[in-house]
Design a protein around this nucleic acid. Structure first.
Ligand code: FES
Ligand code: FES
Lengths: 146, 146
DNA sequence: TGTATACTCTACTATTATGATAGAGATTAT
DNA sequence: ATAATCTCTATCATAATAGTAGAGTATACA
């Protein structure tokens, strides 16, 4: 797994929205400014996240973005997988693969699968509700640093 | 962490040499053919591995490559880190980093550090001796499939 | 109904990493 | 000598990444 800037930005954006959950929509500009993301890049990322069912949007005045689900229902792993792809460190760790000469004898495959599993256990075990709580616990958030 | 072809090839090559440990040198061509690696690419990789202290070479006739250390003294993690770089999924998981606006408040950093640690525990806990043993246990190896 | 605000969509671009390939040169056993 | 083998530097093609640009669409509200 490699987290790209796009993935990093996506996570920070979802977290930004999680911190606003229940309130009015947040504009792309707000999200971009607060997490220090290039606005036009974030536009594309948000469209992706919308297609992925993570966020909703409102157009026009007082428009912006909202989470499509409660923060407690969005796991870190879901988002990162959607944006940056599978977490395995090499393609052959995946289920259907036949690259190796004899994949059944390959001693590395199991190792990469172990790594994938260990990674999944971490990222699929934390929701944006918990992340948001962590942030809030760190003190009053005026201009929160995501 | 993402395992590149170069990293994958390096691991397979070291394993190939581990299976030959104690015997005469193995040529680049042999190693390339047996693990299905482009010869000229493997040349470069082996030069790297040599600089990294993993292998030794003999030039001229009956030349080739040998492991510089016993297979039991070479961990998977060492090789992959040398060839493909640090295992962390994002740079900010590293010790010295100041990219985030407020890195001390960043809730993601700990997660990526957890992932790095879990990965390290796996790859730093297996040597090429064990990998070679696994291969040998799978039956007689005529043309071994790495 | 006009207009400002804000999302939507497609295309384009620059940079870098990856995965090689090419070829001349150096060393060594026989 | 010479054949086999490693050594070194340069070059190249492709794809992914990280953006940028700009025209278009929807909505609130005066
Ligand atoms: S199946 Fe991936 S290295 Fe063998
Ligand atoms: S320090 Fe890496 S996402 Fe914050």
């Amino acid at each position: 797994m490699r987290i790209t800037y796009k993935g990093d930005y996506a996570l920070k954006t979802i977290l930004g929205l999680a911190l606003h959950y229940g309130n009015s929509p947040t504009t792309i500009n707000d999200l971009a400014r607060r997490a220090d993301i290039p606005t036009k890049f974030l536009e594309q990322i948000l469209l992706d996240l919308k297609r992925g069912g993570f966020v909703e949007s409102r157009r026009g005045k007082i428009g912006g973005y909202l989470l499509a689900r409660a923060p407690s229902q969005i796991k870190l792993g879901e988002v990162i997988r959607f944006v940056d792809g599978p977490v395995e460190p090499i393609a052959c760790a995946g289920k259907k693969y036949s690259g190796c000469n004899d994949v059944y004898k390959c001693v590395f495959r199991k190792i990469w699968q172990d790594v994938s599993l260990a990674t999944s256990k971490i990222i699929d075990n934390i929701t944006f509700e918990e992340l948001a709580k962590n942030i809030k616990d760190k003190g009053p958030v005026y201009t929160y640093q995501i």
